[in-house]
């Protein structure tokens, strides 16, 4: 059970990176980036490609992945967001969806259709803590996610660039009036979001492998996490990620926690199948919205002008 809790935490850590990037773009642009799942795919393949070529662990490859993803994220914003910045938000919906098809097909063409395995962040294997074997990869996933979230926090709260990025996220018009280059800030925000998603891709590629078609599933999970927490709230994104991860790992394992109940009613087991758990996730989402129509932490995003 402790093992499963730990897996939940590690999964939530990786999802947090996705959800935070998603929310950063959302706050800066007021638009949803539906190519976010493809960043995971591209980052994962980048890590897998570099890892098998250089034979180096993920932690060493990571800076290259982050840099590469920043460029890809920035380019994506120039193609799919910049020309449409004054258009209805739903145009960006479609353009980012199209970009995600382009990114994933390009990945397919370059790397082929086979799943790939990424390098472990530090090493594979497990360390024994008492009678629980903790996977080094899961452990380092949590550590790396914490480091990246902390780095993101420091950049946004302590640097001049971060202050500008935040100003743009809080009020684009005001930031423009103050003479900031709003468009450049948005390109950088996309870059940071892509880098965080790419880092998540690096983590996933080792544990779960990565295939060119994986983007949509990651996208939907990110969307759920970010929305459940509250549209535009970074704290909410992290809580939302935890929520999604819990429904993926803990809910299906509930029969283990109460074997007597399941023993008495074997048909109950079907209620905790992975498929059923996904259904519970959406129902839980509706329940959350029923009591808190603005998500767990409330709205924080500026309305798009």
């Amino acid at each position: 059970m402790i093992q499963l809790l730990f897996n939940t935490l590690s999964l939530a850590a990786a999802y947090s990176l996705l959800a935070i990037g998603f929310v950063l773009v959302l706050n800066a642009t007021g638009a949803v980036n539906l190519a976010h799942g493809s960043f995971v795919v591209v980052g994962g393949f980048l890590a897998a490609g570099l890892g098998s070529w250089l034979k180096l662990p993920g932690a060493v490859v990571l800076p290259i992945v982050l840099a590469g993803m920043m460029i890809i994220g920035g380019l994506l914003s120039l193609i799919a967001y910049y020309p449409l910045r004054n258009r209805p938000a739903v145009s960006v919906f479609i353009s980012t969806l199209s970009m995600s098809a382009i990114l994933e097909t390009a990945t397919l063409l370059i790397f082929g259709p086979s799943p790939r395995v990424g390098p472990p962040i530090l090493s594979s294997g497990a360390i024994q803590v008492g009678d629980v074997a903790l996977n080094v990869q899961s452990l380092s996933t949590v550590l790396l996610a914490v480091v990246l979230v902390a780095a993101q926090y420091v950049i946004f709260s302590r640097t001049v660039l971060g202050k500008r990025l935040r100003a743009v996220a809080e009020d684009r018009e005001m930031a423009r009036a103050l003479g900031m280059n709003v468009n450049a800030m948005i390109v950088i925000t996309f870059g940071i979001a892509a880098a965080l998603a790419g880092a998540a891709g690096l983590m996933f590629a080792n544990t779960f492998y990565i295939t060119p078609g994986d983007g949509e599933a990651y996208m939907i999970k990110t969307y759920v996490a970010a929305t459940m927490g509250g549209w535009g709230s970074l704290r909410g994104a992290i809580v939302g990620a935890l929520f999604v991860a819990a429904f993926e790992v803990l809910v299906p394992s509930l029969p283990l926690a109460m074997p007597s109940l399941v023993g008495a009613l074997p048909s109950l087991e079907a209620l905790f199948s992975p498929i059923a758990s996904t259904i519970w996730l959406y129902l839980a989402f509706l329940v959350v919205l029923f009591f808190r129509p603005q998500g767990l932490f409330g709205e924080a995003v500026q309305q798009r002008a």
Partner: peptide
């Protein structure tokens, strides 16, 4: 798929 998506973005 790349061409189709590019055309869609161009139309947008």
């Amino acid at each position: 798929l790349i061409i189709t998506s590019s055309v869609l973005i161009a139309i947008l």
